[in-house]
């Protein structure tokens, strides 16, 4: 499987995480732009998911199949979960939640690559 979708997720997730951190430093909740950033991260995650599904459908098998599928599920739900929690927390801590959600997806990319190649 190509590494590009995963790399794209890493880059966008880290950029949006850093941006949310700026809002934390400014003592502000996530604004429209940060939420748009979360949407972009999730969009790139879904592209990566589609690439993984295509690879699996084409007969490719990750070294740890079950673990890979588990991480894939976490991968897709983390940012929407973070979005809902951040919306419920309109303080700087909402920005922390958005930041953490992005960082978790950046880490999950690493794990997905690890369990794919074993």
């Amino acid at each position: 499987m190509s590494h590009w979708p995963g790399t794209a997720v890493t880059i966008t997730a880290l950029v949006v995480a850093a941006w949310c951190l700026v809002e934390v430093a400014r003592n502000r909740p996530p604004g429209r732009l940060q939420y748009a950033g979360l949407a972009v991260v999730e969009a790139v995650v879904l592209v990566h998911l589609a690439a993984a599904i295509v690879a699996l459908a084409g007969g490719a098998r990750p070294a740890e199949y079950g673990t890979f599928l588990g991480y894939l599920i976490a991968y897709v739900i983390v940012v929407p979960m973070g979005f809902l929690l951040a919306r419920a927390e309109p303080t700087r801590w909402g920005s922390v939640i958005a930041c953490v959600a992005c960082l978790i997806d950046a880490v999950v990319v690493v794990r997905l690559n690890e369990v794919w190649s074993g």
């Binding site: 976490a74 983390v78 979960m81 929690l85 303080t91 801590w93 939640i97 953490v100 978790i104």
Partner: peptide, 14 residues
């Protein structure tokens, strides 16, 4: 369950 607590809830939930 407010503020930092909400961050903990998220990570614990995951």
């Amino acid at each position: 369950n407010r503020g930092p607590g909400r961050v903990l809830i998220g990570v614990y939930g995951l």
